[in-house]
Amino acid sequence: MSHYTDLYPTDRLAAAAKAAAEAGLDALLVTPGADLRYLTGYQALPLERLTCLVVPADGDAFLVVPGLEKPAAEASPAARLGIDITGWAETDDPYALIARRLPDNLAKVGVDNHMWAEKLLAFRRAMPGTEQGLAGDVLREMRMRKSPAEVEALREAGAAIDRVHARVGDWLRAGRTEREVARDIADAIIAEGHVRVDFVIVGSGPNGASPHHEVSDRVLQPGDPVVVDIG
Rank of each mutant, 00 (worst) to 15 (best):
E90W: 07
R12E: 09
V64C: 08
R12A: 08
N105V: 13
A19K: 05
V64Y: 02
T177F: 01
D35T: 10
T40S: 06
G110T: 07
C52F: 00
S147R: 10
L25I: 09
I189Q: 00
L29C: 08
Q43S: 15
A27L: 06
D170F: 00
A73P: 00
R12S: 09
A15P: 09
W171N: 05
A89P: 05
L134M: 12
A27N: 05
W88V: 10
L36E: 02
G175E: 07
W116E: 15
H194S: 05
G205P: 03
S210A: 15
I201Q: 04
P94Y: 02
P211D: 15
R124H: 10
V195H: 12
H194Y: 03
S76E: 03
P9L: 06
E180T: 11
L25K: 03
A191K: 09
R183W: 02
E69K: 08
L63H: 00
I83G: 01
A174T: 14
D93L: 05
M142I: 12
A15W: 00
L102A: 07
P77L: 06
R49P: 04
E48Y: 10
G169R: 10
L50M: 10
A96P: 04
T31P: 02
D224C: 06
R125Y: 01
V202W: 01
V151W: 00
F62M: 10
S2A: 14
V54I: 15
T177S: 11
L50V: 04
N207L: 12
P225C: 08
A107N: 15
V164F: 01
H165S: 15
D35G: 03
A126E: 07
D224S: 07
Y8V: 08
L106S: 10
L172N: 06
L28R: 05
N105A: 15
E22F: 01
E118C: 14
Y42G: 02
L134C: 13
P225V: 08
E74A: 11
D229Y: 00
L154R: 13
D162E: 11
A153T: 08
L81H: 01
L45P: 06
A96E: 14
L39W: 03
G193Q: 03
V151Q: 13
P94V: 07
E180M: 09
P9N: 10
I98T: 04
D92L: 07
R143A: 14
D93T: 08
R143W: 00
D26A: 12
Y95L: 05
